[in-house]
Design a protein around this nucleic acid. Structure first.
Length: 281
DNA sequence: ATGCCATACGTTGTATGA
């Protein structure tokens, strides 16, 4: 079984590239982030035509996570089971649109943004996550990012078992080691590399998760994201912030893990590359 | 090393990204 994760940076804008990638790489499960769609606007039909069921958890303009699977979708969890997410400002809602808009504009807390969806696919509980960016260290957005990782950790401890097959894939927005950025001197005082953010990922690993990519690739300078600007992709100036964290029963079945750098090339790419792993039956 | 910022919303700019 092949499980992949890809921050598509708008599923609407990326659908053609995603369809090509599904046909080319043939994943059984694709976790997606930053779909930037409401559930009503999610492209269920194109995925169905490609042989996949689509589970979408979105709010509209920002965020949005999804799972495409051709091995079933069962036992769905959205937003850690904390209830409905707010709509992006300006997005129509059936109830309380004005109140939700005012709340969204006033708040920096991502607790009710569409950043987590989970289901059991092919016997593995998969979790698609889009961690908050954090913007800058001295902002409420950064503190909210750390709080969001705390919520993820609490959800794992309370509802999951590290001895069971589980894979958390997504845009963690954290580079776990110095080897995961092109040059640490460019990241002094920046988010994505700070000690508290790295401690948050270490806490996930301590619970019982393994970085599937690092199992197979210890080498430095392997990135999953490159800024669109200044030709950074072509200069090799990236970060490894998209990860596949798996429990030990999955790690034991994991025969390969790759970053598909080719998917970052060409016309209208996402700024992220897909990360995928292969599991034996 | 395969190209030099993109997305949505909505209107000629603003917010967001990491």
């Amino acid at each position: 079984m092949r499980i992949a994760t890809w921050n598509v940076n708008s599923l609407k804008a990326r659908m053609e590239r995603v369809e090509e990638w599904l046909a080319d790489r043939s994943p059984d499960v694709l976790l997606m982030q930053e779909t930037k769609l409401s559930d009503e606007a999610a492209p269920y039909m194109p995925f169905s035509m490609a042989g996949y069921d689509l589970l979408h958890h979105g709010e509209g303009r920002w965020n949005g996570v999804a799972i495409a699977s051709r091995v079933g979708i069962e036992d769905v969890v959205t937003n850690f089971g904390d209830g409905p997410v707010r709509r992006s400002p300006g997005v129509e809602s059936t109830t309380g649109a004005i109140a939700e808009t005012l709340e969204a504009e006033a708040s920096a807390a991502p607790a009710d943004e569409a950043r987590m969806v989970s289901a059991v696919c092919g016997g593995v509980r998969v979790v698609s996550i889009y961690a908050p960016n954090g913007r800058a260290l001295d902002t409420p957005f950064y503190r909210a990012k750390l709080a969001w990782f705390d919520r993820l950790g609490r959800w794992l401890r309370e509802t999951c078992d590290p001895s069971r097959p589980l894979a958390i894939g997504g845009d963690f927005n954290v580079a776990p080691e110095d080897a995961d950025v092109y040059d640490m001197t460019d990241f002094v005082g920046a988010t994505h590399v700070s000690a508290p953010e790295r401690a948050a990922l270490a806490s996930l690993r301590d619970w019982g998760l393994v970085d599937a990519y690092r199992m197979h690739h210890p080498e430095p300078g392997r990135f999953s994201w490159w800024d669109y600007r200044a030709g950074n992709f072509h200069k090799g100036l990236g970060m490894r912030i998209d990860h596949m964290y798996v429990t030990r029963p999955v790690a034991a079945r994991c025969t390969a893990a790759e970053i598909d750098r080719d998917a970052r090339k060409g016309k209208l790419p996402s700024d992220h590359a897909p990360v995928y792993m292969d599991l034996t039956d």
